[in-house]
Design a protein around this nucleic acid. Structure first.
Lengths: 336, 336
DNA sequence: CGCGTTTACGTCGTTCGTAACGATA
DNA sequence: TATCGTTACGAACGACGTAAACGCG
């Protein structure tokens, strides 16, 4: 059994049991991969895949078990390499992050620019997607960090570090009648207007919809998007009243939009940053977490680095200690 | 990085940083091992060992981390091989068991003979030792099962399957005055005589001594051994009253010794069988556990096989369900 | 006949063992 | 000088890539 053989095995699995594709991904010849698979099967004395004629049909039950173990082996081999790189020179490497639009657009820019300043030699890859797409990217490997809000169910394979909390803001055109309210805005006020907001299911099972339902109200949502910029665009067009993450209501918007803090109207959301269980975090990765979850002390980060289960992390971080991030640059300066 | 290199690395560590010894253990040449270590260090760009002149001095801090990961890799590689052997032919392999004298002498013979009948091609290795020695054997690898009583603290790396419980028996010469007692024997009775029993600390912090202390008594222990046969020998010589595990008071002894059941006098002990966490159990290994812990259903065994933490196992087995093993063959027939 | 896998074979790099050398206590 | 690790070198092995054959849809 060779590490190479296990690597090829996983490449075949991760490329839909297509040896040719696997070979291309591994930058090697197709017969080589085919042969190594054959040798591995021979040494183990068992078939890892069923054959349909000459093609691979499916993974055998025993094959699944072997693959599972092979993944552990490759993960630990990667970890050894990480340890070594980290030990030798901590400032080089790469960092792949999968995240949602709100984070990528409103929160990460400040953090990324600071990170690049500190680690100019670390190659940064940002991938934007929905929570589900992020989960897929994780499964397909090659992602070091996932950053998202709520929806922890999709990410049971990750260690999730709660990083900050945020409220929502109401966004209306400058001349909107809601701006003339001489009292705090209520859900009842909002329910009178057509609403423009995130796709429901964002951050769990529609905490937004439930907030209305809890008061016996049914909101009139006329438009949903995954993207605060799109929402604001339609608000500008007068399509309705926008509800966005407070971070997304930035200063630039104040020119033609009125932003009303909706703190207390909806439950607070918690954004976390997650990494694979059992992954060795390189120093610059820990530093990135520190930039993102600025409330953590170095001591806490050390403990997190050593944590082996989500419970360990949950025990380290009190949700109530998390900073609350607002809009219009306040949050950003806080992070830097 | 090659599996072979990691294997050599661990061999060096496990042989006291002596490359020559490691090479012998691996049935290969010493320069080969030396070179592979060098290549590994070169590839990782770090020293795994400090050098004292030409000899290896100690493991570097980073080296410890690498070794830890390497152990996981080798363990999973072994697991893959186990899976394969098991899949192909379940009836061949080997089984190494480390256990205490009482188990090896009085409990295992029946089980082993049954096991050999079922799996004649599985090579059996039994190693006898104290709990501490068993723990050492585990650490040095090459042991599949540990069987012992109490002292779970020494075996936190193992999954422990509680297997049966047992009481102690009093052993006296045929003509001893304790045999003429017309009531149930008490600790107070025992305290009047010189005692011969196991080394204190057997099975935890001397549950035996504590049983006396709880009644305000101080036993007069004149001789301690690790070995019921030795104890019985001294009882025969009239040195004192023997207290042994009930399993150790077998029928053959009844010729010249009187055995008095001491159930209730001392707390019950629980004997367990343990295997390494994350180890794949081959089918014959599961069958061995079944022979040893005969109360388990196939369903429970399946769950145990899949368990990933000690808590999972503890949740599956109620201590009160464990059979109580007595002496004089009753227990043995029950197990077969 | 295209797609994908396996077989065949020549080349090249790696591992291994023996032997000799170097360093340390 | 005994012990242990490294260097040197030739032989055997194994991995890889190209080319060609094979099976299936």
């Amino acid at each position: 059994m060779k590490l190479q053989q296990l690597k090829y095995l996983l490449a075949i699995v991760d490329n839909g049991l297509n040896i040719t594709a696997a070979a291309e991904r591994m930058y090697t010849s197709q017969p080589g991969v085919s042969k190594q698979l054959k040798l591995l099967e021979e040494e183990l004395g068992m078939l890892l895949f069923t054959r349909k004629g000459k093609s691979l049909g499916s993974i055998t039950p025993a094959g699944h078990q072997v693959i599972e173990r092979a993944r552990i082996i490759m993960r630990e081999a990667d970890n050894i390499r990480s340890l070594a790189s980290d030990y030798f020179q901590e400032e080089e490497g790469s960092l792949s992050i999968a995240t949602t639009h709100t984070q990528a657009r409103y929160v990460l820019p400040g953090i990324v620019s600071e990170f690049r300043k500190r680690f100019p030699k670390v190659g940064l890859n940002l991938h934007q997607g929905t929570s589900e797409q992020i989960a897929d990217m994780i499964a397909a490997n090659d992602i070091d960090f996932a950053i998202a809000t709520g929806s922890t169910d999709l990410f049971t394979d990750l260690m999730l570090v709660p990083s900050y909390r945020w409220d929502r803001s109401i966004v209306v055109p400058k001349d909107h009648e809601l701006t003339n309210l001489d009292r705090k805005i209520t859900l009842g006020d909002l329910a009178k207007y057509p609403l423009v907001t995130y796709v429901f299911s964002f951050g769990g099972q529609s905490s937004l919809k439930r907030a209305f339902a809890d008061e016996g109200l049914e909101p009139d949502v006329v438009f949903t998007a995954r993207d605060a910029d799109v929402i604001k665009t339609y608000v500008r067009m007068g399509l309705g009243v926008g509800i966005v993450a407070s971070m997304a209501a930035d200063c630039a918007d104040k020119k033609d939009l009125q932003v009303i803090d909706a703190e207390g109207l909806f439950p607070r959301s918690t954004t976390w940053i997650g990494y694979r269980k059992n992954a060795v975090l390189r120093r610059y990765m820990v530093d990135f977490i520190h930039l993102f979850a600025s409330h953590l002390t170095s001591r806490q980060l050390d403990d997190i680095r050593r944590a082996s289960s989500q419970d360990d992390i949950d025990g380290l971080i009190q949700t109530s200690d998390l900073p609350v991030r607002g809009g219009c640059d306040e949050g950003m300066t806080e992070a830097v």
